[in-house]
Amino acid sequence: GSSGLPPGWQSYLSPQGRRYYVNTTTNETTWERPSSS
C-alpha cells in the first residue's frame, strides 16, 4: 500500500487514539512520522 512511510515502518493507533510509528526491523517506536530520507 501507499502509506508514504519508509520501508520497515508501520503506523498504529494507541489506545488513546494517538498515531505512532513502529520500525518492524529495529522495534523502534516513535510519535514522530519517520522520514524516508
Results as ranks from 00 to 15, higher is better:
Leu13Lys: 05
Pro15Lys: 09
Leu5Tyr: 03
Val22Pro: 00
Thr30His: 05
Pro15Ser: 09
Ser2Phe: 10
Asn27Glu: 06
Thr26Ala: 03
Pro34Asp: 01
Thr30Gly: 02
Leu5Thr: 04
Asn23Gln: 03
Gly17Tyr: 02
Arg19Met: 12
Leu13His: 04
Thr24Arg: 08
Glu28Gln: 08
Trp31Met: 06
Asn23Pro: 00
Pro7Tyr: 07
Asn27Pro: 01
Asn23Arg: 02
Ser36Glu: 13
Pro6His: 04
Thr29Glu: 07
Gly1Ser: 13
Pro34Thr: 01
Arg33Asp: 07
Gly4Val: 10
Tyr12Ser: 04
Gly8Phe: 07
Tyr12Gln: 05
Pro34Met: 02
Thr26His: 02
Gly8Ile: 03
Thr26Asn: 06
Ser2Val: 14
Ser3Glu: 14
Pro7Lys: 07
Ser11His: 05
Asn23Lys: 03
Gln16Phe: 08
Thr26Lys: 03
Pro15Phe: 05
Thr30Phe: 08
Pro7Cys: 15
Gly4Met: 11
Gln16Glu: 15
Ser3Trp: 15
Gly4Ala: 13
Thr30Val: 10
Pro34Ser: 01
Glu28Tyr: 07
Leu5Gly: 03
Ser11Asn: 01
Pro7Trp: 08
Gln16Pro: 02
Ser2Lys: 08
Ser3Gly: 13
Ser2Arg: 06
Arg33Gly: 03
Thr29Ile: 15
Ser35Thr: 14
Gly8Asp: 08
Trp31Gln: 04
Pro34Ala: 01
Pro15Tyr: 05
Tyr12Glu: 05
Ser37Pro: 14
Tyr21Thr: 00
Gly1His: 12
Ser14Thr: 15
Arg18Pro: 05
Ser11Asp: 05
Thr30Arg: 08
Thr30Pro: 00
Thr26Gln: 02
Arg33Cys: 07
Thr24Gln: 09
Pro15Gln: 07
Ser37Thr: 13
Pro7Glu: 10
Ser2His: 13
Gly17Pro: 00
Pro34Tyr: 01
Ser35Ile: 12
Gln10Thr: 14
Arg33Leu: 10
Thr25Lys: 13
Trp31Thr: 07
Leu5Cys: 01
Leu5Pro: 03
Gly17Leu: 03
Gly17Met: 02
Trp31Gly: 03
Thr29Ala: 10
Ser36Trp: 15
Glu32Asp: 11
Arg33Lys: 11
Trp9Gln: 00
Ser2Ile: 13
Trp31Phe: 11
Asn27Arg: 09
Arg19Pro: 15
Trp9Gly: 00
Arg33Asn: 08
Pro6Ile: 05
Gly4Leu: 11
Trp9Phe: 03
Gly1Asn: 12
Pro15Met: 06
Thr26Asp: 02
Gly1Phe: 11
Thr24Phe: 08
Gly17Asn: 04
Ser35Phe: 11
Thr26Glu: 02
Arg33Tyr: 12
Leu5Asp: 06
Gly4Ser: 11
Arg18His: 15
Leu5Phe: 03
Thr30Met: 07
Pro34Gly: 01
Gly8Val: 04
Thr26Gly: 02
Thr30Leu: 07
Leu5Gln: 02
Glu32Trp: 09
Ser37Met: 11
Ser11Ala: 11
Thr26Arg: 03
Thr30Gln: 10
Asn27Leu: 13
Ser36Tyr: 13
Ser2Gln: 12
Asn27Ala: 08
Ser3Phe: 14
Glu32Pro: 01
Tyr20Asn: 00
Tyr12Lys: 06
Leu13Gln: 05
Asn23Ile: 01
Glu28His: 06
Pro7Leu: 09
Trp9Val: 02
Arg18Glu: 15
Arg19His: 09
Glu28Val: 08
Ser35Tyr: 09
Arg19Gly: 02
Val22Ser: 03
Ser37Tyr: 10
Thr29Asp: 02
Leu5Val: 05
Tyr21Met: 00
Gly17His: 02
Pro34Trp: 01
Ser11Met: 14
Ser14Glu: 04
Ser3Asn: 13
Tyr21Lys: 00
Thr24Pro: 07
Trp9Tyr: 03
Thr30Trp: 07
Asn27Thr: 04
Asn23Asp: 05
Glu32Ser: 08
Pro6Glu: 04
Ser14Tyr: 01
Gly17Lys: 03
Tyr20Glu: 03
Glu32Val: 13
Thr24Ser: 09
Pro7Phe: 08
Pro6Tyr: 04
Arg18Phe: 12
Tyr20Ile: 06
Trp9Ile: 03
Arg18Asp: 15
Leu5Arg: 02
Gln10Arg: 14
Glu28Thr: 07
Ser14His: 05
Ser36Gly: 13
Ser36Asp: 11
Leu13Ala: 03
Gly1Asp: 14
Glu32Ile: 14
Ser14Ala: 04
Ser37Ile: 12
Thr25Tyr: 15
Ser37Asn: 13
Tyr20Val: 06
Thr25Val: 15
Ser14Gln: 01
Thr29Leu: 15
Leu5Lys: 02
Tyr21Gln: 00
Trp9Leu: 01
Pro7Gly: 06
Ser2Leu: 12
Thr29Ser: 08
Arg18Asn: 14
Tyr12Met: 09
Thr29Arg: 13
Thr30Lys: 07
Thr25Leu: 15
Ser2Tyr: 10
Ser35Ala: 11
Tyr20Phe: 10
Gln10Cys: 10
Tyr20Trp: 06
Arg18Tyr: 13
Ser36Ile: 14
Val22Phe: 09
Pro7His: 10
Pro6Ser: 04
Thr29Met: 15
Asn27Tyr: 09
Pro15Glu: 12
Ser3His: 14
Glu28Pro: 00
